[in-house]
């Protein structure tokens, strides 16, 4: 989808600089529209299809904050994401704007990479409904097969609170490797799934994981791997075919905070790409 972007800034130099930065990002850009202040921007928004607004705050006639309030009060414009681009250093003001519906904030000057990350964040946030996602996931699942491998463990090493316990290697439409960082609860679930244990205590979990360490266990995980440049999203839908499928959902309960949390079923924390 080509993005139509509206740049709102009273400085022509800044508008030109932002255009230049946008042109350096590997994105499909449609129209770049410009406005010198909030009033002009609102007029442009009634005349053109705009996907994203990049707005300064301090402008004559109508500043960015007032423009955003107008946008949020109109059915036609309230869903258009606004990114504030400013040298504003008052964090309270930025927080207030974010609370009022501003999606992101870019500090001037910003780099093409920062802009790209904002775009990626915004469009990831606008992920389709769960049903749509699962439909898409199942459609693409056939193209991506994943195998789970338990990392070798030292004999005398008990299952620690947080460690890398397994990897999921996947291949198909995308290929790569995810490392799973988890604690004891996750290990118990893993052991129950792999070892067909009814209920694993800590020792049983340790024993099972050691037994299966460094073995490709062949658990089939339909997943969708979507990528933009160096960032990946991993989507793991519910696995109906797994005998203990409900337990997979529990994985999320024991994930570390930097987990790629997709659809609440996330189990990956770090992705290592294959060449």
């Amino acid at each position: 989808m080509a993005l139509n972007i509206l740049i709102v800034d009273d400085s022509r130099i800044t508008r030109t600089s932002i255009q230049h930065i946008i042109s350096m990002v590997d994105l499909e850009i449609g129209q770049i529209l410009e406005a010198e202040n909030g009033q002009e921007a609102l007029k442009v928004l009634t005349e053109a299809d705009v996907d994203l607004v990049l707005a300064d705050l301090n402008m004559p006639k109508m500043g960015g904050a007032e423009m955003i309030r107008h946008m949020k009060s109109s059915e036609a414009t309230k869903s258009i994401p606004v990114v504030v681009v400013s040298t504003e250093s008052r964090t309270t003001r930025i927080k207030n704007l974010l609370a009022e519906g501003v999606k992101e904030y870019l500090h001037k000057p910003f780099t093409p990479e920062e802009f790209r990350q904002i775009i990626q964040t915004l469009w990831n946030k606008q992920t389709p409904e769960l049903g749509d996602l699962l439909t898409k996931a199942m459609a693409e699942a056939l193209e991506t097969m994943a195998f789970l491998t338990v990392i070798p463990m030292e004999d005398d090493l008990p299952v620690p609170e947080k460690t890398i316990v397994a990897e999921i290697g996947f291949s198909g439409a995308k290929s790569g490797k995810i490392q799973i960082i988890a604690g004891l609860d996750f290990c118990k679930i893993l052991a129950e799934n792999i070892g067909a244990l009814e209920k694993a205590d800590k020792q049983a979990a340790c024993d099972a994981l050691k037994e299966f360490s460094n073995v490709t266990c062949g658990l089939f995980l339909p997943m969708v791997v979507s990528s933009t440049a160096d960032m990946f999203d991993i989507t793991v839908p519910k696995i109906k075919s797994c005998s203990n499928s409900s337990q997979w959902e529990e994985f999320v309960a024991d994930c570390s905070s930097d987990t790629l949390n997709i659809e609440g079923h996330a189990i990956a924390t770090r992705l290592i790409l294959k060449d």
Partner: peptide
């Protein structure tokens, strides 16, 4: 209000063209 806007504009333009010292001065 106008004075704040003018200084802020110079600050923003200085930052965008990479003249950081001017941007700091405006700050």
């Amino acid at each position: 209000v106008t004075i704040r806007r003018i200084i802020h504009k110079i600050k923003g333009e200085s930052a965008m063209v990479g003249i950081d010292e001017m941007s700091d001065f405006c700050h």
